[in-house]
Amino acid sequence: MNIFVAKLNFKTRKEELEAAFTPYGAVSSAKIVRDKETGRSKGYGFVEMPNDSEALQAIASLNEKELDGREIVVKPANPKTAETASY
Rank of each mutant, 00 (worst) to 15 (best):
S29T: 03
S41H: 06
M1C: 06
V27R: 11
E16I: 02
R70N: 06
S29W: 13
F21N: 00
A26Q: 08
Y24D: 09
S61Y: 03
N9E: 13
L62I: 00
K7T: 08
K11C: 13
V27Y: 14
P23Y: 04
F46Y: 15
M49Y: 09
S28C: 11
A55S: 13
S29Y: 15
V5I: 13
I72S: 08
S86T: 06
E16L: 01
A19K: 13
P50M: 10
I72E: 06
F10I: 07
E48K: 11
T84Q: 05
P76L: 14
F46I: 02
L62E: 08
S28E: 09
E37C: 12
G25W: 15
G39Q: 04
A55D: 06
A6S: 08
A85P: 08
N78H: 08
T12A: 14
S41Y: 12
F21Q: 00
S28L: 07
I59M: 07
Y24M: 00
A30R: 06
D35C: 06
V47I: 09
G39W: 05
A77N: 09
K80C: 04
L62H: 01
K80F: 05
Y24K: 02
F10P: 03
G69L: 14
A19W: 13
A30H: 14
S41E: 06
A77L: 07
R70V: 04
K65W: 11
R34A: 08
S29V: 10
F4C: 00
L8M: 04
K11Y: 15
S41R: 07
E16Q: 05
T12L: 11
Y24V: 00
K14F: 15
V47N: 12
E71G: 08
K42W: 13
L56D: 08
P50R: 12
S53L: 04
Y44D: 01
Y87P: 02
A85C: 02
S53W: 05
N78E: 15
D52Q: 15
A82H: 10
V33T: 10
Y44P: 00
S41P: 02
E16N: 01
T22M: 14
K65L: 06
F4M: 00
K75A: 11
Y87S: 05
E64Q: 04
T81F: 03
G39K: 01
N51K: 14
T12Q: 12
G39C: 02
T81Q: 08
V47P: 06
I3V: 14
E54K: 10
S29D: 14
V27E: 14
S29I: 07
N78V: 07
K7C: 15
T38M: 09
Q57S: 07
R34S: 04
K42P: 03
E18L: 11
M1N: 06
S53G: 03
V73L: 01
L56F: 04
I3C: 06
R34F: 07
F46R: 03
K80A: 09
F46E: 15
V47C: 10
K65V: 08
P50D: 05
S61L: 00
N9H: 06
E54N: 12
A58E: 15
G25C: 14
